[in-house]
């Protein structure tokens, strides 16, 4: 049974992330639906763009400085910022201060350090801030969960996503072998080292298929695009879905 105390006292901002905004709008939509169902007032500050991770991780940290500036300006006043992406939250919490310092902007770095602790990946926000694991979701399918590297090793979300998934009504959650191994996406790595990336992804896809799951779920659409892209090419008939979409799924509005 879903138990929640509505947190209408919090000013919650959705950081949709540029990737989701452009390519996977269903994920931020599901995030809004889910958070509102749990009693949050969600705002989408339209001035937001991107965390700059792709630039930083490709070696262009200098080009990311205006994006760090923008992030702080757009989100600085909110009580909580929620993003359906472990990777983008990892970039804010782990890299933004470094990007600012590398550019010699100590002022910006300290502003980042004010905002960063209030930026949460979706499962962190649900479990740690709202204090819920049963979000009242319904998803009657066989599902396996891939913990993305940045959720696992940068954010240390631990088993929060699994706690949330276990509480979903009707779900048949099966363990993914070699779950903590990277899927091989890695941002521009997927293009610059495409052979190794595909070799890693092919092993991940094989593990997914081994579980007999109908759906592979993760907290990052970028990793899912890679795993799902390989599964799709193989004609495996396995869907990839973001965690937010399963948690938002109900009998009335199934994912």
């Amino acid at each position: 049974m879903m138990v929640t105390t509505p947190r209408t006292d919090l000013r919650v901002a959705l950081f949709a992330t540029c990737f989701n905004d452009t390519m996977w709008p269903e994920t931020p939509k599901a995030t809004v639906r889910l958070l509102e169902r749990l009693g949050c007032r969600v705002e989408f500050p339209a001035a937001q763009t991107c965390c700059g991770q792709m630039l930083t991780n490709t070696g262009y940290a200098g080009e990311a400085v205006p994006l760090v500036r923008r992030f702080v300006d757009v989100f600085g006043d909110y009580d909580a910022v929620v993003a359906p992406s472990g990777s983008c939250v990892g970039s804010v919490r782990d890299q933004h201060a470094m990007v600012a310092r590398r550019a010699g902007d100590e002022g910006l770095a300290s502003e980042v350090e004010q905002v960063a602790p209030r930026v949460h990946e979706l499962s962190e926000f649900l479990v740690d801030v709202l204090g819920v694991t049963d979000v009242g979701a319904w998803f009657p399918h066989r599902v396996t969960y891939h913990p993305t590297c940045h959720s696992l090793r940068l954010l240390r979300v631990g088993d929060r996503p699994l706690q949330l998934l276990r509480a979903v009504e009707g779900i048949d959650l099966v363990e993914l072998p070699g779950a903590d191994e990277c899927c091989g996406f890695g941002g521009t790595f997927a293009m610059k080292n495409s052979d190794v990336s595909v070799a890693m992804g092919t092993d991940k896809a094989a593990h997914v298929a081994e579980t007999g799951a109908e759906v592979v779920v993760a907290g990052d659409n970028s990793c899912l695009a890679h795993i799902g892209g390989i599964l799709g090419r193989q004609g495996a008939g396995i869907r990839s879905l973001h965690l937010a979409e399963i948690l938002a799924s109900t009998r009335e509005e199934p994912a």
Partner: peptide, 15 residues
């Protein structure tokens, strides 16, 4: 990308 992976279908409307 596409030698071994399908491409995610772009949406008709952004978020």
């Amino acid at each position: 990308w596409t030698d071994a992976r399908d491409v995610p279908t772009p949406p008709k409307e952004t978020f």
